[in-house]
Simulated scan of single mutants.
Amino acid sequence: METNKSYRITLRPKKEESLKRFHPWVFSGAIANREPGLQEGNVVRVFSANGEFLGTGHYQEGSISVRILSFSDEPIDVDFYSRRIASAYRLRRIIGLLHAANNSYRLIHGEGDNLPGLIVDIYGKTAVVQAHSSGMDADKEMIVEALLEVLGKENLENVFYKSEGTLPARSAIETGDRYLLGGEHVDAVALENGLKFNIDWLRGQKTGFFIDQRENRSLLEKYAAGRDLLNMFCYTGGFSVYAMRGGARSVHSVDSSSKAVMLTDENIRLNFGEDPRHTSYAEDAFKFLKCASTDAYDLIVLDPPAFAKHRGAINNALQGYKRLNLAALEKIRRGGLLFTFSCSQAISKEQFRLAVFSAAAISGRKVSILHQLTQPADHPINIYHPEGEYLKGLVLHVE
């Protein structure tokens, strides 16, 4: 396939330092000149004010104007994507994710795999591709070709492109969610650590499942025996399913979405049949906690959607985390365990921990941190891009 034409971008004086430290973003305010004809999604070569080459990337209108794909002067073509995807695939083998009991994992995690703007999740023989930049949208056919080259036709039968909710409005309208490969007789049941999950990549959130909580679900399973679990914001019921296998005495799954509750119920039945230990509720989380009986639960999971989508929402988000954790701390039984999370990229570990500390102080209860949690190894964090560390979690013991 022909290599994309590249355009030249020149930075303002002294705006090249972050790129020399291998940070993969160029902000709009750093750009002095753009070559005529440049459009969203085009490949650009970035130069300093002194004419020094700095990197090659995708251009997009907005605050982040360039996402750097390579700090070398090389073409962005199928071979480029094949090399990057092959490197990511080798890492997943090293991590130990590819085995008979597990066929769901994140293959490409944006900046963490040196492909900013691209997410690829694998569910069995289906890849769900999500573009977060116009450039990745423009390159989607090359990405599919590279995926086939690396994974092989025997391991990849379907590629579903799910980017309507992540692309700029114009690109999303032009693209639409659809199969780029296969799409007939698709098996939508994936295995995670021996447990089965229905994956709704057509209409579900993100790529259909929150793979990033895999290791944290396994940790909860170890603590679940004989406990009464409340799983707030359950979505597809991942924590509930693991707790059931771990021997929980009762499991209550709560989500404001009736569709999410239906998915949770399906996944419980898929693994355990009609099990009387499980009950689901389509209700608002705060209202449910307010009405819950005191001492009803000795294991609570709080895994809400991102409260802060951008920096302007940080203060309101922190208040939300404080209120939510206070409500749980006021209800949990003595000796109970609280698994609490934030997936807001704009919220730092320190800010989240301070919000939980404030809730604990107001509750007046004795609280100890047992575990500090983060995203799993198939969601790697580029050391030059600390913003990639988005998932924060704490496991608290409450007296």
Rank of each mutant, 00 (worst) to 15 (best):
Y321H: 13
V395C: 13
L299S: 04
G117F: 10
L329N: 04
N42T: 03
N50I: 00
G152K: 06
M244W: 05
R8W: 02
L289M: 13
S63N: 15
D298G: 12
Y123F: 13
D265A: 12
Y384L: 02
N315R: 15
R353L: 09
L69W: 14
F22P: 00
E387K: 12
N193C: 08
N102I: 07
F272H: 07
I31W: 11
K162N: 03
R269L: 10
R106M: 08
W25N: 00
H58C: 06
F286K: 14
V128W: 09
M244L: 15
I211N: 10
S82Y: 04
M244Y: 04
P36G: 12
L324G: 03
S82T: 15
P276Q: 06
A285N: 11
K259N: 08
I85E: 05
S134P: 07
L148R: 14
G246F: 03
Y390D: 11
A188D: 09
E266T: 12
P13S: 10
E52A: 15
I211Y: 13
A285W: 06
S256R: 14
A190V: 08
G312A: 07
L302G: 11
L191H: 02
G247E: 06
F71T: 05
D255Q: 09
S72R: 14
Y235E: 11
G165H: 09
G393M: 05
A306E: 03
L69S: 10
S6W: 14
L195D: 04
D79A: 15
E61M: 10
S368Q: 14
S250H: 08
H278M: 09
L324D: 07
A88R: 06
A131T: 01
K14C: 00
A328W: 04
F339H: 03
V254K: 08
L107R: 08
K309V: 03
K196C: 09
K322N: 09
P36E: 13
